[in-house]
């Protein structure tokens, strides 16, 4: 009841505000990466709704969630009175996004890039939409500095490239590993290493045998909300993992899944961290 009253009250407040002042943008972001971009552009206060994958920065978790970006409902989004809805181009169900458009709301869906150049253009697009081009340019400049540092590191490195295996989800029942065409899997090539499962295109179930056959020198495990750190005790549950060179040489690292595979403003930092983990540790 209190929640309904609150929604009603805030709706009323914003209706009045709309009459008196120039209308401020009200943004619903349906993807963790776009949420992160909006926040990085200094526009977190314009966010009135997010999806469940939006977990960074931690303060956005206070914003009401409209559910998961693949199980959306039109009325939940519209109840937040957004003027702009941002999300990934594979958000579901498609008809829901059409209904939101039909209600007169601008819906911008962006593809998920797998390169830093793609991240730059995504940031530029969002910055333009928000009228924050200056902040966008600063973000892009920082990404470029990180990119340049990474390229230098990669160029200076000597010796054979390492084989890296990326796990998206780990449980005894199912282990999803990421091939080179997925977001997390594409990170590997960007640091001059080899994805240990080249034949696997996206993130799919990996069998114990395929894990052993992949002979990874380094294993990266993605979990939600984890800081980058060495060691990954939960990986012991993955059958076959103890037979890998990575396990024997203790080359296992845990990353936050949004930080590592999200291809957002922090991706430059993530790549530098990955490079360090793969080539500078020990």
């Amino acid at each position: 009841m209190a929640r309904v009253a609150l929604v009603a009250l805030s709706a009323l407040f914003f209706l009045m505000a709309a009459v008196v002042h120039e209308q401020p943008q009200r943004i619903v972001s349906l993807d963790g990466t776009t949420t992160e971009i909006v926040a990085a552009l200094g526009a977190e206060h314009l966010l009135v709704g997010r999806d469940d994958s939006s977990t960074y920065p931690a303060s956005v978790e206070r914003i009401p969630s409209v559910g998961y970006q693949f199980t959306l409902g039109a009325e939940g989004i519209l109840s937040l009175h957004p003027s702009l809805v941002l999300g990934r181009d594979d958000a579901q169900p498609r008809t829901v996004l059409q209904q939101v458009r039909d209600a007169g709301v601008r819906v911008v869906l962006l593809s998920e890039p797998h390169t830093l150049a793609g991240v730059e253009s995504k940031i530029a697009t969002v910055a333009t939409l928000l009228g924050r081009k200056a902040q966008g340019k600063m973000l892009i400049a920082r990404l470029r500095r990180e990119d340049a540092a990474l390229r230098r590191d990669v160029a200076e490195r000597r010796g054979a490239p390492a084989r890296v295996l990326v796990f998206l989800a780990i449980s005894p029942e199912m282990t999803l590993a990421c091939g080179p065409q997925s977001g997390p899997g594409a990170m590997v090539a960007l640091v001059g290493a080899i994805n240990a499962l080249p034949q696997m295109r996206s993130c799919k179930t990996a069998t114990p045998e395929s894990i052993i056959a992949a002979r990874p020198d380094v294993i990266v495990a993605l979990t939600r909300g984890a800081d980058m750190r060495a060691g990954a005790p939960q990986l012991r549950a993955v059958i076959g993992i103890t037979q890998t060179p990575a396990w024997r040489s203790h080359r296992l690292y845990t990353f936050d899944s949004l930080f590592f595979g999200g291809f957002g403003p922090r991706s430059g930092r993530a790549l530098l961290d990955l490079f360090d983990a793969v080539y500078r540790a020990n």
Binding site: Y68, F70, T71, L72, G73, A74, D90, Q92, P93, T95, V96, Q98, Q99, L168, A169, L176, S182, R201, S202, C203, K204
Partner: peptide, 20 residues
């Protein structure tokens, strides 16, 4: 892959939210 899985889960769980 994980993206197809999400679409499937939505559908296998049953939902009226795609109603038009």
């Amino acid at each position: 892959d994980d993206q197809q899985l999400r679409t499937l889960t939505f559908w296998l769980m049953g939902s009226l939210s795609a109603a038009t």
